[in-house]
Simulated scan of single mutants.
Amino acid sequence: MKLGFVGTGAITEAVITGLMKSRSDIEAIVVSPRSQDVAARLAEMFPIVRVGRDNQDVVDSAEIVFLAVRPQIAEEVVKELRFHGHQQVVSFIAAVPIESLASWIGVPVIITRAIPLPFVAALRGATAIYPPNDDIADLFSSLGTAVQAEDLKQYDLFGAASALMATYFGLLETSARWLEAEGMPYDQASIYLKGLFGSLSHVTDASNEQSFEAMASEFSTKGGLNEQVFAEFKENGGTKALTLALDSVLKRIEQK
């Protein structure tokens, strides 16, 4: 299997790092020279990684081409490239539909969209894929979990859900600053909250329960403190604000 990455940023680095930990069937990887520091670091770390002369060299050298450029320059970059018929193309480019990519590429390639997150470097997390493609799903299953969207709406919903990461850290920051305001050193608050939320993440991974509501109930004594905090969070508009934000993000994704 020969892979090529057009665009060499943080997600490309995470995907390649994960693949090098989990796959033994990759013969060669060629990466774009544009992000010189990342490209050079990958080539130094992994013997099968080569920095391409240019993006066309990446495409010419690969059976599967990954597009990992910013949406603002995607059309310009992709239209300059000459693809080979029946190549596989995997797009990490947010909010650019398959129809647009196909028109820019201009030859009959197989196009799959994917949303890998930074955690794939550690073989964790879930990568959403659309349309279903067993070969690409197998590749991303090596990096954690691959979730194949049944239709475009479901894929867009996965994209909206992936926008929750900053909110997660924002919740931690708000909690840490509250503890600090009550007299606890920020560093100590941070250590405690990392341990608490890290343990909750482990419980979530290990649980056979599908309902988060059931998990919340399991960790909330009737009339206890956990139940109180969530009830007041909900009553003061916390869950409504989150729902409205997700609605807004989904609308933005669907309008692209």
Rank of each mutant, 00 (worst) to 15 (best):
A43D: 07
V58Q: 01
A43I: 03
M20F: 07
I48W: 04
R53I: 09
N55G: 08
D54H: 07
M45K: 15
M20V: 01
G18D: 03
I11G: 07
V30F: 07
A14Y: 03
T17P: 09
R50V: 10
K21W: 11
I16R: 03
A14D: 03
R41A: 06
S24V: 12
G52Y: 00
L19R: 05
V15A: 03
I26F: 01
L42V: 02
E44R: 13
P47A: 12
R23K: 14
M45A: 15
P33H: 09
M20R: 04
M45F: 14
V38P: 00
I26M: 06
V31S: 06
V38S: 00
I16S: 02
R41S: 09
V58T: 09
R50Y: 11
E44D: 12
V30I: 15
L42N: 03
S32Q: 05
I48D: 04
I29H: 01
G18C: 06
R34S: 11
P47F: 13
N55I: 03
R23G: 09
D54N: 15
S32N: 08
D54R: 11
V59K: 05
Q56Y: 09
T12N: 06
V31I: 04
R50E: 12
I26E: 01
S35G: 13
L19C: 08
V30C: 10
I26A: 00
V49A: 09
V15F: 04
I48S: 07
S32K: 08
V58G: 01
L19D: 02
S22C: 05
N55Q: 09
V30L: 09
V49R: 01
G18T: 00
S32D: 03
D57H: 14
Q36K: 15
S35L: 10
E13W: 05
A39H: 02
I11W: 10
A28L: 15
D25N: 15
E13M: 08
G18L: 03
I11N: 09
L19N: 02
E13C: 08
Q36G: 07
K21Q: 14
D57R: 08
E13R: 12
R34H: 12
I29Y: 01
R50M: 12
T12M: 14
S32F: 05
A40C: 08
A40T: 10
I16T: 07
M20Y: 05
V31P: 02
Q36E: 14
A39M: 05
M20W: 04
R41K: 11
L42W: 01
I29P: 00
Q36H: 12
P47S: 15
V58F: 05
P33G: 07
V51I: 13
